[in-house]
Design a protein around this nucleic acid. Structure first.
Lengths: 338, 338
DNA sequence: GTGAAAGCGCTAACAA
DNA sequence: TTGTTAGCGCTTTCAC
C-alpha cells in the first residue's frame, strides 16, 4: 500500500519510487556502503519529496542496537533536578547523544520507578543515565552488564554501576564550618528523614559531624518531604536556645525564612539560617546562605562517562567521580544574636 | 540462542521454557484472548523467573501502533518550562499515558528542533505534545492528520493542530491595570524582542495597549534573551522619568531589581517593578509583583485533550483552550514615588 | 484453548 | 554498484 501521508511512507515506497531496491535505498539514506553518487542523490530526493520519516523502531530492531540513551529523571519541578535535567540535555546535544527521558514522580513508590525502568529497557536503549534516588542498586544491577548505567547526582555502591555524584559530605561540612566560624554553638539541623531524601540525610549527617566535632550542641530534626514540614520544630529549637537553623535544602531554607518572618524573628539578627543547592533564581536577592551544587559539572561528567562507555566497551573499574560545589555566603547567616 | 542475561531473553525463550508456543506466551503476557488460567500463570512465572523484559520496539512494530505520547520540550532550566514539564508528567501518569520526552535547547536553531520532531515521529508515537515555541505550524501540519498534535502553553493557528495555552494577553492587561491603578503614568515595558520570545511579546503588547489606552506614556524596550539584557535601558528610562518598569518575565524582573539595588534606587519607593510567571520559589519572600501563570491547568487540559483525541479519533474542530492566571500583588510595586 | 504462519519496516550479509 | 534473502522480536489472524 503506498503513501497517503508522510508517516505511512516506508522505505519500500521510496525505493520503488526511485526505481531501486530496498537495500540500495537503505544505503543511500544511511550514507554508508558503496553507492553511485547519482543514485544516492536520486533516492534522497525521492525520500524528501515523499516526506519519508524512517521508522526508528524497525531500524533498531533490525540492526539489533539502539542509538539512544535513556534518562530516568526525578520530578523536575525541584529546581535541582530541573537544572540537572537541562544540563544533561545540553551536554548530550553537544556530544551528539540522543536522549529520551522518562520521569517518575518524587513521591512515587518503587513499583512506578521500576515501571519507568522497564519502559526504558523495553526500548532497548544503548545506555541508561539514572537521575533519581528512587531506584536502587539491586534493581539496576541485573542490567548493568548489558547496558552501561551511570547514576548522576548521587553515589552508588553497586560494583557494575557507574556514578558521577555530588559530594554532599563536603557540602554539609562547608556549611557547618561556616556556621561555626560565625560563632554559633547551638544549632538545629533540619532535613528530610531517611525515608524522604538520601541526599538531605548525607548533608545533615555531615553537618552534625562537623558541628559536634567542634563541640557545638546539635538538634537534629527529621521532616517529611514538604519543605514546610518540621519548620515549627525548628523554631521550637530556636526558642529553646539554638541560634542557627541549618536546612538540608534551599526550599526548606525558604520555609524557615517565611516562618521566621511571620513569627517576627529577625534574620540574621536573632537567627541565622542556611540551606543547600544554590540554584534558586533570585537566591542572591534573598541573600540565601547556601552551597551552589555543581550541577553542570556533574551533568557534563555523567554524559562524558556514558559516551566513553558506549564507545569503549566495559571498563574494568566502575567510574566514580564526585564533585563539590562552592559556599555562597549570604545575608541569612551572621554572628549569633544577643 | 538462549538467555545469558535478562535483556537477551525473548518471548521465544519464555515460550519454550514454559512449553507453549509464542502466540500463547503473548496472550498470557498481555492478559488478552482465550487462555487457560493455569497456562497463563505458568507462563507469567517463567517470564518472571527469566527476567524477561518485552522489547517494546518489536511489539509496537508488529502491532502497528504505539502506546506512548511524545513530548517536545524547551529547555527546562527556565522555571516556567520546568514546571510545565513536571505537571505534564504528573498528569500523564495520573491518566496512564506514557510519555517520552525529547528536549531542544532554547537557543537552538530550527534544524535542531526539526531533528527532535523527527526523532519522535520516527518512534511513531501515538500523539505529540509540543511545549516549545521553536517549532512552527508549518513543520507540524504535515503530520497532524496522522497523529494528534497538541501544543501546550501557546496559541496555535494551524487548522489541524490543537492548542491549550496561556492567555498572555489577559496577563499583560492584568498587570498593566494594576500598575495604572497604583497611579503610574510613565511606564517602561521590558521584553524580549520578537525574535527572542513570542510569549514575552504577547505580554508586552498587551501591557502597552492597556497602558496607552489609559493615556499613560509607554517606553518599549526590546531585549535579547539573557535576562540582564536591556536592564540598563530600562533604568535609563527611569532616570528620564518613568516610575515603573514592567518586565515580561520574572527573570527579567529579578535582573531589574538587582540593578536597582546596585544603583541605589529604592523599590518600590522610587521605582515600581513587575514581572510575569509567578513560579519562582521564594518569589513571595522577595515580594515579587507578578502574575502566576496557570501551569497546572494548562498541563492538565493538554493531557486531557491528548487522551480524548487518542480515544475518540479526529474531532471536527481543533481544541482551543486558553487559561489565565492570577495577579500576585507584591511589594515591588507601589504608588509612584515623589 | 492453543499453535502455525504471515508479516510490521528495516538492516546486513551475501550474491550477482 | 546493486539486488536477494534472511531475519530482528513480536502480534495477530486463522485453523486446529
Amino acid at each position: 500500500m503506498s503513501a497517503d501521508s508522510p508517516l505511512n511512507v516506508t522505505i519500500n515506497d521510496v525505493a520503488s519510487a526511485a526505481g531501486v531496491s530496498r537495500a540500495t535505498a537503505t544505503r543511500a539514506l544511511k550514507g554508508e556502503g558503496r553507492i553511485a553518487d547519482e543514485t544516492r542523490k536520486r533516492i534522497l530526493e525521492t525520500a524528501e519529496r515523499l516526506g519519508y520519516v524512517p521508522n526508528t523502531n524497525a531500524a533498531e530492531l533490525a540492526a539489533g542496537r539502539t542509538g539512544t540513551v535513556g534518562l530516568m529523571l526525578r520530578d523536575a519541578s525541584n529546581p535541582a533536578y530541573g537544572r540537572l535535567f537541562s544540563s544533561l540535555q545540553d551536554e548530550a546535544h553537544r556530544r551528539g547523544l540522543d536522549l529520551v527521558t522518562v520521569t517518575v514522580g518524587a513521591d512515587q513508590q518503587g513499583a512506578k520507578q521500576v515501571d519507568a525502568l522497564r519502559r526504558l529497557l523495553g526500548m532497548r536503549v544503548a545506555g541508561l543515565i539514572v537521575a533519581t534516588g528512587g531506584v536502587n542498586t539491586d534493581q539496576l544491577e541485573p542490567f548493568a552488564e548489558q547496558v552501561p548505567i551511570v547514576r548522576a547526582g548521587r553515589m552508588e555502591t553497586g560494583g557494575r554501576i557507574h556514578a558521577v555524584y555530588y559530594d554532599e559530605q563536603t557540602h554539609g561540612r562547608m556549611l557547618a564550618a561556616h556556621v561555626l566560624e560565625l560563632g554559633h554553638r547551638r544549632v538545629a539541623v533540619l532535613a528530610g528523614g531517611a525515608d524522604v531524601s538520601f541526599t538531605e540525610q548525607l548533608r545533615a549527617t555531615a553537618m552534625r559531624g562537623t558541628l559536634a566535632d567542634a563541640g557545638a550542641e546539635v538538634t537534629m530534626i527529621a521532616a517529611g518531604a514538604p519543605p514546610e514540614d518540621g519548620v515549627s520544630d525548628a523554631l521550637e529549637a530556636v526558642r529553646a536556645g539554638a541560634t542557627a537553623v541549618m536546612c538540608a535544602s534551599d526550599p526548606r531554607q525558604l520555609a524557615v525564612l517565611r516562618a521566621a518572618r511571620d513569627a517576627g524573628i529577625a534574620v540574621p539578627g536573632s537567627l541565622s539560617v542556611t540551606g543547600c543547592d544554590g540554584l534558586l533564581p533570585g537566591g542572591d536577592l534573598l541573600g540565601l546562605t547556601t552551597v551552589r551544587i555543581p550541577v553542570e559539572q556533574v551533568a557534563a561528567a555523567a554524559v562524558e562517562a556514558m559516551q566513553s562507555l558506549l564507545a569503549g566497551g566495559a571498563e574494568s573499574q566502575p567510574v566514580r567521580r564526585g564533585f563539590a560545589g562552592e559556599l555562597v555566603t549570604g545575608s541569612t547567616a551572621g554572628p549569633p544574636g544577643r
